[in-house]
Write a protein that binds this DNA or RNA. Structure first.
Lengths: 244, 244
DNA sequence: ACCCTATAAAGTGTCGACAATCTGAAGTCG
DNA sequence: CGACTTCAGATTGTCGACACTTTATAGGGT
């Protein structure tokens, strides 16, 4: 007994912001609760629903012209992403953005993305390598274009990490990072607005990581990725300690 | 006779995001959906509801004398643990136990528990060290008692990994492992019935890991834990390849 | 015998309403 | 004047019913 592989998870990882308004044009096999979930996720990540604010089920239900039942399903999915917290008989609140929470995310990312690099190097396919090289080339041109200014915003960085993880071919890892953790990462980036000021350095580091993956050197790829993330963490840490 | 609540002795997790709420939460989590969730989780983990089997909402609702609404909430929570999979307009199935899925879990655990060890060594408190030593002592006596026979079943091993993760003091890490991933690990252990045949070796490895944490050597602790988990993974891998 | 179509059955998605609980303010007593 | 009790308002948890989709079954055509 073996064989059946659950490809179900990694598919949904679309970064594209779904239509903010309830334009019912969507064809498809997605439920109302599904659409509510996607919309609310965007609003929370982008801060249109403030971090730490209370969520009123009746109010949101009226706003989206849906029943409380469907809305509750959306809220529970948001809870499973740790974007909101629910207490019984009290209600739901958007999570707070804390310094500690952000640093904790970095530690987890260091571990998981390091492993993703190792696996990507071990299981590398010509197809993955092609996409990675292509992406790096795009980013290089972007960087040439706007010298020094933030390396195409955080989006370029996101793109990089996203594809590396995909190349690991470990569905659990992909799901944990791309479908769960990354939404909270984006929430921090949007709302604490940290455009990485490590433009050139970050690009070079990305480049070296992909080289290691190409060479099939999983150990090196892991080390480089962990160092890359830890540098980013230190950077944030300094920034935050100065702010206070 | 229904066991109702999981008798997960030493292994009961605390919800994530330990906000400094002074009074011990202590309030019974008395939502009906909550109880259904706990009951179903046990039944799935222990295999009383077979892996891969279809789940009928009306049938389960009748069986527990609850409405479909409450049951659906429980099911969605199970989905967020990856214990069941739901497809729109089709229904829910208990996840399959696949060789690939099991190995993927080991890779993720290697990354996360390795990091947990590193953090535990960095943030070690006298309280945590005391508990770890005490636990190790208990396990040692257990081992003396039943020489060689499976090191107090997998429970001892579980206890070890559980407490190490707690000692990391990273709430995200704790939540990811203890409140999410470990239930699937337990599901595999119960149903593929793999009592680790690495009794003495596992105990010695545990011992060395805790020594490294005591010494504050995060790097060594991480390396040892990763080696420990990788050995367990290889062990399983061999076992499975022989079975086929 | 096979394939396609149409109908019936079952199951899921969604909704509105009722009951239990919590929050907050007014009122009372020391 | 302050602390406790009481009560009203609002919110969450739970339920049963209805609409739509999927699936299984039976029938007819080639």
């Amino acid at each position: 007994m073996e064989g059946q592989i659950s490809k179900t998870s990694a598919v949904e990882a679309k970064a594209g912001t779904a239509s903010a308004e309830g334009g019912k044009g969507a064809r498809g096999s997605q439920s109302l609760a599904d659409r509510l979930f996607l919309t609310l996720r965007s609003e929370i990540v982008e801060g249109r629903i403030a971090a730490g604010s209370k969520i009123s089920e009746p109010e949101l239900a009226r706003r989206f012209d849906a029943s409380r039942g469907s809305l509750r399903e959306a809220l529970m999915r948001l809870e499973s992403l740790s974007l909101i917290e629910r207490k019984v008989n009290v209600g739901a609140r958007v999570v707070d953005l804390t310094e500690r929470g952000l640093l904790e995310i970095y530690d987890v990312r260091e571990a998981l993305e390091g492993m993703a690099c190792r696996l990507a190097a071990q299981n590398r396919s010509e197809e993955d390598l092609g996409e990675l090289r292509q992406m790096l080339h795009r980013h290089e041109q972007q960087e040439e274009l706007q010298k020094g200014t933030a390396y195409f915003q955080p989006e370029g960085d996101f793109d990089f990490h996203f594809r590396i993880v995909q190349a690991s071919h470990n569905d659990l890892l992909i799901d944990t990072l791309c479908n769960k953790l990354y939404y909270r990462v984006r929430m921090y980036r949007y709302q604490l607005g940290m455009a990485s000021p490590r433009a050139h350095r970050a690009f070079r580091e990305h480049s070296h990581i992909i080289e290691a993956i190409e060479a099939g050197d999983g150990e090196l790829a892991e080390i480089l990725m962990r160092r890359h993330i830890r540098a980013s963490r230190s950077n944030i840490e300094n920034k935050l300690s100065k702010q206070n």
